[in-house]
Amino acid sequence: GSRRTLTQTPGPSGESAPAPLPRHGAPSWPLSFSIASEKGTEEDEGHFDWWHRLFQIDDDLFYSTDVQTYLGFLKCSCRLLCILSLVGLVVVLPVNWTAKPLTDENLETPLDRASAQNIPPGSYRFWILYGVTWLYSVLTYLFIYQYRAMITDPDVPIRQMFNPTKYTLLVRGIHRDNIDANILYSHFRKFHKDRVVTAHLVMNYSRAIEAEHDLKWAQNKLERTRIQNAQRQREEQPELSVRPFWQCFRRVPAVRYWQEEVHYRAKLLEKIYVQGPTKGAGLGFVSFTSPDCVSDSLADPRV
């Protein structure tokens, strides 16, 4: 991917060190900062206005490829459901409703008459329903094929945007004390205005990983101690005991010791999760609306 180092300032001993960025309050876990840009919105005109918007909206209004892909999926799904509903109302419903069942005692509601329950066994109408089922299957596979062709065609603009490396800039040399991605976002907005889509920082989760490893180790110790105690009980031997390092002469049951250790490790891990990461990895990613912005950032010495 594309890379660029942020401006550096001399360190205390004269060497070049990454320029520290202001640190703000600790964010929620996990840290991410994302801003999606839109070119304009309109007021709602009614309960069914979403239907008009779905087919009339321009995909270029959204810079996010995820949004464009999802809108394309919704459009294909709505077209498919419209055709299936039309076939059901024009063909399936009259076929079921106009049938003459052998008995009317169980047909108490309009839903009963509209279902296949209204058709007597052996009627030719079942062949019509069988053909409609095949029609549903063919239409469904046809729309799946069309949607797949839409997102895999290299000439379609939405497919060209599926390569995120062309729109993303890798930034290194960020001070590890900076955990606010808004600083990175604001820095690039000074040069590219509204063409900056998102900014993310890679956080350092080493504390959480170490705490998870310690908790797993304590759980394994507890399980192993229980198995050994069960074996010693069958052999009529005393249970295992340990001597904690803070108690030089007093031994405690091993099971109780490891239970307390597991409880402590679990509480510590929960505290780390709530607190969130306190250090960054020195890396960040900035996404733009076009590959030209990435090229301009790499060529502009001010950035």
Rank of each mutant, 00 (worst) to 15 (best):
Phe33Trp: 13
Phe33Ser: 06
Ile35Lys: 07
Ile35His: 02
Ala36Ile: 06
Glu38His: 07
Lys39Asn: 09
Thr41Asp: 12
Glu43Asn: 11
Asp44Ala: 09
Glu45Gln: 14
Gly46Cys: 02
Gly46Val: 02
His47Trp: 03
Asp49Val: 11
Asp49His: 03
His52Ser: 07
Leu54Cys: 12
Gln56Lys: 12
Gln56Trp: 14
Asp60Arg: 12
Asp60Cys: 13
Leu61Gln: 08
Phe62Met: 02
Tyr63Gln: 15
Thr65Asn: 14
Thr65Leu: 14
Asp66Arg: 14
Tyr70Glu: 15
Leu71Ala: 10
Phe73Ser: 09
Lys75Pro: 00
Ser77Val: 06
Arg79Ile: 13
Leu81Gly: 07
Leu81Ala: 12
Cys82Ala: 15
Ile83Leu: 14
Leu84Cys: 06
Leu84Pro: 09
Leu84Arg: 15
Ser85Pro: 11
Leu86Gly: 04
Val87Tyr: 04
Gly88Phe: 08
Val90Phe: 08
Val90Glu: 01
Val91Asp: 07
Val91Cys: 05
Pro94Lys: 07
Trp97Pro: 00
Lys100Phe: 00
Lys100Arg: 09
Pro101Ser: 03
Pro101Arg: 00
Pro101Asp: 08
Thr103Met: 01
Glu105Ile: 11
Glu105His: 01
Asn106Pro: 01
Leu107Ser: 00
Glu108Ser: 11
Thr109Val: 02
Pro110Trp: 09
Pro110His: 03
Leu111Gln: 12
Leu111Pro: 01
Leu111Met: 10
Asp112His: 10
Asp112Phe: 10
Asp112Ser: 01
Asp112Arg: 03
Asp112Ala: 02
Arg113Ala: 08
Ala114Glu: 05
Ser115Glu: 02
Ala116Ile: 13
Asn118Tyr: 04
Asn118Ile: 02
Ile119Glu: 08
Pro121Ile: 01
Pro121Ser: 11
Gly122His: 01
Gly122Cys: 07
Gly122Ile: 02
Gly122Thr: 10
Ser123Gln: 00
Ser123Ile: 04
Ser123Pro: 11
Ser123Leu: 07
Tyr124Gly: 07
Tyr124Lys: 05
Tyr124Val: 09
Tyr124Ser: 10
Tyr124Trp: 12
Arg125Gly: 03
Arg125Lys: 10
Arg125Ser: 07
Phe126Glu: 00
Ile128Phe: 14
Ile128Lys: 09
Ile128Trp: 12
Leu129Thr: 04
